[in-house]
């Protein structure tokens, strides 16, 4: 609850429109897009698929071990990219009014962090699919805040899972 003085300034602001001042590290460029987070989630799924395919082959020769390690590393990196991209949207793009309009947004962001960590900790494709589903919901909210309709289509990636695109 803001104090009387703040509310008084708020009233004055509505009348006088006080000039904005930026504390920002860089200029708020307005360039935000949930696509990178979705691509990262798809990559996590793809890497888990490859890990499981390699494991299913039953071979343990150095070439397979090498591929297994690389796929695991990439899975880790892209789970972290996914978290970072969502953190940027949450911290820099989404504003209080967005949270009011979409009250599940905080929970979706929280779940993204947890699911991405889960995807790092295991090769469980269900966790990665849940991560993608959560990121897709955030992507849809993002575009709604811009008044842009979205569509879910099967991505042109080997994952063959959905991806959210803006209808432009």
């Amino acid at each position: 609850m803001k104090g009387f003085l703040y509310r008084a300034f708020g009233t004055l602001d509505r009348i006088a429109k006080f000039e904005k001042v930026y504390a920002h590290c860089d200029y708020p460029c307005g360039i935000y897009d949930p696509h990178t987070a979705q691509m990262a989630a798809h990559t996590v799924i793809r890497m888990i698929d490859l890990i499981n395919e390699t494991k299913a082959s039953g071979t343990s020769d150095p070439e397979h071990q090498h591929n297994l390690i690389r796929a695991t590393m990439i899975k880790e990196q892209h789970a972290e990219i996914c978290k970072n991209e969502i953190r940027i949207l949450w911290g820099d793009y989404f504003k209080k009014e967005h949270l009011e309009a979409y009250p599940n947004l905080n929970e979706l962001v929280f779940n993204t962090m947890k699911l991405a960590s889960k995807a790092k900790q295991s090769a469980d494709v269900k966790a990665a699919e849940e991560l993608l589903a959560t990121v897709e919901q955030i992507a849809e909210i993002f575009w709604k805040t811009k008044g842009v309709e979205t569509k879910r289509v099967t991505a042109f990636y080997p994952t063959k899972r959905e991806i959210v695109y803006p209808k432009v």
Partner: peptide
């Protein structure tokens, strides 16, 4: 005297978004 409104979060915690600066 002039009044400005903080427009982003990156001076937090010393200055918060929507603070008024006199």
């Amino acid at each position: 005297i002039a009044v400005f409104k903080v427009s982003d979060k990156s001076m937090e915690p010393s200055l918060k978004e929507n603070d008024y600066l006199i």
